[in-house]
């Protein structure tokens, strides 16, 4: 009898509401694509989609890292600067004549190290992630100009090969190596979140950090780990960007953190933490990419419309999250 009364207290429907935002993003993406195809004949070419991936591969990787951070209820403002710093350091070291392999290793270590340090400050000294990663953002951007005030071109063989290598089918459609790397990162991240303790701890901490602590979860370690992961993803993103542009520029990727956060939110991850998927983030990045492509195709619209549209979409999705009542705190 008691069991029955307990059953009756169940208030939510069985359909998980947390899936609604992701489904909405998917729908939006299909609509946007449909609009593109109906308006511009060239849009239906599969290469358009591939180009979205090619142009936004680095954004996708960085957004995956950000998804981890936001799932714990934190935020990482440093990613744009870390992307730039990684590209800058790579370009600088290559110009100094270091071997490509060594440069890769060094470049890939800087981001996670900074992320680790920021995570430590956030955890051990209990300072808001917003402030700490803001300092990290200043630091990384400052390092960029410290290395060089102007852009450094990359002429290294490995880099140019990675930049120009096309993987495609006989009909001429192709993707770059960056896209493959980006998808590998997505796959690893999705597996980590769904099937490892670290991933589950990320969700638990995003849901309720105090509970996590009392349940004996390694809250501090997890929190430091997500900022390290975000730093690593930003570093990979930086390398991909340097493949893409074949240079390191001190002022590249300024404000990128906003695009990344927007992509994650549009992808259905709740900014308070505890709910969201890497798959949603992929969709979010695609939405941004398709909008950019649409605006480019149109020709009459100026680049600032991208920002206005992204702002509008952010509003729509945040409102949606609010309406279906995703709030765990």
């Amino acid at each position: 009898m008691t069991t029955l009364s307990l059953m009756a207290t169940r208030t939510w429907s069985r359909l998980p509401r947390r899936h609604v935002p992701v489904l909405a993003t998917l729908l939006l993406l299909l609509v946007l694509y449909g609009v593109g195809v109906s308006q511009y004949r060239a849009f239906s070419n599969i290469q358009v989609i591939f180009n979205v991936f090619i142009d936004n591969g680095f954004l996708l990787v960085v957004a995956v890292g950000m998804t981890f951070v936001i799932l714990t209820g934190g935020i990482d403002l440093s990613v744009g600067s870390v992307v730039a710093m990684t590209a800058m350091v790579s370009a600088f070291l290559l110009r100094e004549g270091l071997p490509a392999a060594l440069v890769l290793v060094i470049a890939l270590l800087i981001g996670p190290t900074l992320g680790f340090l920021m995570g430590c400050v956030i955890h051990f000294f209990d300072i808001q992630p917003f402030i700490v990663t803001l300092a990290g953002m200043f630091f990384a951007r400052g390092m960029c100009t410290f290395i060089s005030g102007s852009s450094i071109p990359i002429s290294d063989g490995f880099w140019t090969r990675m930049s120009q290598q096309r993987i495609g089918n006989p009909s001429g459609n192709f993707v770059s190596i960056s896209v493959i790397i980006a998808f590998a990162v997505v796959a690893v991240a999705a597996y980590t979140l769904a099937y490892t303790r670290l991933g589950r701890n990320v969700y638990a901490i995003g849901g309720n950090p105090q509970s996590g602590l009392l349940m004996g979860l390694p809250v501090g370690r997890t929190r430091i780990a997500v900022y390290t992961i975000s730093g690593l993803c930003a570093a990979i993103g930086g390398i991909l960007l340097s493949f893409y542009t074949l240079s390191g520029a001190p002022l590249i990727a300024v404000g990128m953190e906003l695009d990344v956060i927007a992509a994650v939110v549009i992808g259905g991850t709740v900014l308070t933490g505890g709910s969201g998927y890497v798959f949603g983030t992929v969709l979010g990045v695609l939405v941004l990419g398709v909008i950019q492509t649409l605006i480019t195709f149109d020709g009459s619209l100026n680049s600032w419309w991208t920002k206005i549209v992204i702002g509008g979409l952010l509003f729509a999705f945040i409102l949606l999250q609010r309406l279906i009542g995703i709030r765990y705190k």
Binding site: L258, A262, L271, T272, S303, W304, K307, I308, R322
Partner: peptide, 27 residues
């Protein structure tokens, strides 16, 4: 009124506002 978290609510205008400013000055 709508009850959106401030950091998110103002992020909207932070992103879109730059676009609006550029729209006003036509870039």
């Amino acid at each position: 009124v709508i009850g959106i978290q401030p950091i998110i609510a103002t992020l909207i205008l932070m992103v879109a506002g730059r676009g609006l400013a550029q729209l006003i000055t036509e870039g």
